[in-house]
Design a protein around this nucleic acid. Structure first.
Length: 314
DNA sequence: GATACGTGGCC
DNA sequence: TGGCCAAGTAT
């Protein structure tokens, strides 16, 4: 008993996608499931423009899971560059290992099996099953949630966490047909990324403006004030600065250099190679915080201690 | 459920 | 200038 209204939404949004979608390499028909998986993990909390060059580099260097699995995890972390949340690189490396060891080197093609992989949660499992394998899955990411919130619920923003009602709504909105469901997932996500954006939505370009509950309601304000992500002075900031030092270094970095060492311990003419170290020290983080940050990196497996210092996992 | 977890561009 | 935000996951 699918209402005519819903069918119209499907057709209009998918049609919009066919004309306005970005040409992204992981959407090409010749992109492997591995390429899709890598893209999805890289895209977690990270803008497309920053992912593109790193994804290209990874695909060239590690065209299949087994090639990544054959390298030390530190190589994955180094090649992750400045994408952020480097533990994702670690988990992708671990996932590649499991795929090589337990799945015959092939990315699993079901939501349940994908969910077992490190770094793959409900969103990524659904996205890979849908985009790489054409399965009918309910993909719910931040873009899709926002589009549904405005278009259907009439709210400026989705709730702060995914609710059961929201998930149910997403399920009910998904087209019956497999191929159409895949197109729908990609189309709604793209609409949220390009038109129905968090700030300053481009309603003039929206293919379903006529049906938008939020616009109809006079574009009311959000029900809550989004709380910002603390950064200055946090352990995260210190960890990030430390990781930058480790990525840039060829080998182990003296523990003292990481924790206390003033930059002038080293020859000034060393130049650019020392920039990350200078940046770390410029934070003027308390000794205790530096220690805590380093312990965190070691605990998380992002770094490892050797006799001569700290380095990326080798 | 709340919190920790990177990074850089934009308004 | 500085807070907000981006295809989330794990604990």
């Amino acid at each position: 008993m699918e209402p005519k209204h819903t069918r119209t939404l499907h057709a209009r949004i998918i049609s919009w996608f066919s004309e306005h979608a970005r040409d992204l390499p992981w959407r090409h028909s010749d992109c492997s499931p591995w390429g899709v998986l890598v893209s999805e993990v890289m895209l977690q909390q990270t803008p497309v423009v920053r992912v593109l060059p790193v994804w290209q580099e990874w695909m060239q260097r590690w065209p299949e899971p087994a090639s990544l699995a054959a390298e030390p995890s530190g190589e994955a972390v180094r090649a992750w560059g400045r994408l952020g949340y480097p533990r994702r690189a670690l988990r992708l490396h671990a996932a590649a290992g499991e795929i090589a060891a337990s799945h015959g080197g092939k990315v699993p093609d079901t939501h349940a099996a994908l969910l077992e992989l490190p770094g793959v949660g409900d969103y990524t499992a659904a996205a890979v099953a849908s985009f790489a394998f054409g399965r009918r899955e309910t993909v719910v990411d931040t873009n899709i949630r926002r589009v549904h919130a405005r278009l259907v619920a009439g709210d400026a923003l989705p709730a702060q966490s995914l609710t059961a009602a929201e998930k149910k709504r997403a399920v009910s909105l998904l087209p019956r047909d497999d191929a159409e469901s895949v197109a729908w997932n990609a189309s709604v996500m793209e609409l949220g990324a390009l038109v129905c954006t968090a700030r300053s939505p481009r309603c003039g370009e929206c293919p379903v403006l006529d049906d938008c509950a939020w616009v109809r309601a006079g574009r009311p304000e959000p029900h809550y004030v989004p709380k910002g992500q603390a950064w200055h002075g946090t352990d995260r900031q210190v960890r990030g600065a430390m990781m930058a030092v480790l990525r840039q270094a060829d080998g182990p970095v003296l523990r003292e250099l990481l924790l206390t060492g003033p930059v002038d311990l080293v020859a000034p003419e060393a130049g650019a190679e020392l920039a990350p170290l200078a940046a770390l020290h410029a934070l003027s983080a308390p000794q205790e915080q530096l220690e805590r940050a380093l312990q965190g990196l070691l605990r998380d497996g992002l770094a490892e201690a050797t006799d001569s210092g700290v380095r990326l996992p080798a």
